[in-house]
């Protein structure tokens, strides 16, 4: 939920609205905000699932220190969404485990 009106900070300043794709779904975002912000504002709380137990993880530190919020961004896994800004038409995917790497093939044993 966005805080449009804040008793100390006042009204949300006008910013350019852009669209990002999260797991194929279009989501509204504002220019210059972080990916995690836009996703949380849209109501999504799970950003990835762990590799062994497939447990959900979300935002934990929000300052780029804990790496709990990593997602696949434009095909690149392990992107810290709490400090990475959105871009128009950015393709974002919930990261499953260690993610899918474009250049590293992942043939199973």
């Amino acid at each position: 939920m966005r805080v449009y009106d804040h008793p100390i900070l006042g009204k949300l300043p006008d910013r350019k609205e852009i669209t990002i794709l999260v797991d194929g779904k279009k989501i509204k975002a504002y220019e210059d905000e972080t990916i995690a912000t836009a996703i949380l504002a849209s109501g999504i709380k799970t950003l990835r699932y762990t590799s062994e137990k497939h447990e959900p993880r979300g935002i934990f530190c929000a300052i780029g220190q804990c790496t709990d919020c990593v997602m696949e961004v434009n095909g690149q896994p392990n992107v810290r969404t709490c400090i990475t800004p959105v871009e128009e038409n950015m393709v974002i995917a919930t990261q499953q485990g260690l993610g899918t790497w474009r250049k590293v093939s992942s043939k199973k044993k």
């Binding site: 590799s51 392990n78 260690l98 993610g99 790497w101 590293v104 093939s105 992942s106 043939k107 044993k109």
Partner: peptide, 9 residues
């Protein structure tokens, strides 16, 4: 490196 999916081992 960071953790990667399993490559041909």
């Amino acid at each position: 490196t960071e953790r990667l999916p399993e490559l041909p081992p």
